[in-house]
């Protein structure tokens, strides 16, 4: 994009953030009463909603049941009005299917599926407004929803994206920065152990810079963890007050 500099000489980005700074995160758990677990998250202008059902009996064909662990079923959809240009279908297109698969992979790594053999856990995420980092927002929302459902997990899964501009790694890309077309890295981290649940990078990036970008994404994911942890603690505190403990 001509005339748009993603990182100023003073080290500020288009929206006024520093290179490693996250956008404002606001989240709430337990937004719906009917689902087993639900959460809503806002990361800057990206808004996502996650709902979890389960663990329950396998729905549909019994043949899909796994004898030793639970089946994690994910569906990603994004509202037709979520993007700048109106989408024709909320789900079922190639990008949504891919996103669903990635989420499934991420959460199979985090949920203790062996505790619920022959059962199914449904995770449905929905993007209501997209402004960059939709994968990260979905993972973070889904983590909160799975926690809200009380499904045992190894650890939080915290995700964040990172990019690379003018020799500097940028954390938590916004839509403008994504659209500029530089390299993009999506990372889902289990913060306590530092294990990576999902790693994906598009476009090209020199091998020497990879470590720097990865480090930026990991640090941002840990920052996300701090915020999510606070949200969970606050939610538990509110819930326990309501229960009269």
């Amino acid at each position: 994009m001509a005339g748009l500099e993603l990182l100023s000489d003073q080290g500020y980005r288009v929206d006024g953030r520093r290179a490693g700074e996250l956008r404002k995160i606001q989240a709430r758990m337990g937004v719906f009463a009917q689902a087993d677990g639900s959460a809503y998250i806002e990361q800057g202008n990206t808004k996502a909603l996650a709902v979890v059902y389960g663990p329950h009996e396998i729905r549909g064909s019994r043949a899909r049941a796994l004898p030793d662990r639970a089946l994690v079923n994910c569906q990603y959809s994004s509202a037709t009005f979520s993007t700048g240009e109106r989408k024709r279908r909320p789900h079922g297109d190639r990008k949504s299917c891919e996103m669903g698969l990635q989420l499934r992979q991420t959460f199979e790594a985090a949920i203790l599926t062996q505790l619920h053999p022959r059962s199914q856990i449904d995770i449905y995420v929905q993007v209501l407004q997209a402004d960059g980092g939709t994968y990260a927002a979905c993972v973070n929302a889904a983590t909160l929803a799975v926690l809200d459902a009380g499904i045992p997990m190894r650890d939080f899964v915290c995700a964040c994206s990172a990019g690379f501009v003018d020799g500097t790694a940028l954390a938590d890309l916004s839509h403008v920065e994504e659209a500029a077309g530089g390299p993009q890295l999506a990372l889902a981290l289990l913060p306590a152990s530092g294990q990576i649940a999902l790693l994906e990078m598009d476009a090209r990036l020199h091998e020497d810079h990879l470590e720097q970008v990865l480090e930026a994404a990991a640090r941002a994911s840990r920052d996300v963890h701090t915020v999510l942890d606070r949200v969970v603690r606050q939610h538990v505190q509110e819930a326990s007050v309501l229960l009269g403990d």
């Binding site: 719906f32 009917q34 996650a50 709902v51 059902y53 079922g92 449904d122 449905y124 929905q126």
Partner: peptide, 16 residues
């Protein structure tokens, strides 16, 4: 008009 019955309403709405 377009109405999307999302799976978050009930798992029956998953897929199509």
């Amino acid at each position: 008009f377009f109405v999307d019955c999302s799976a978050s309403a009930t798992p029956e709405f998953e897929g199509r």
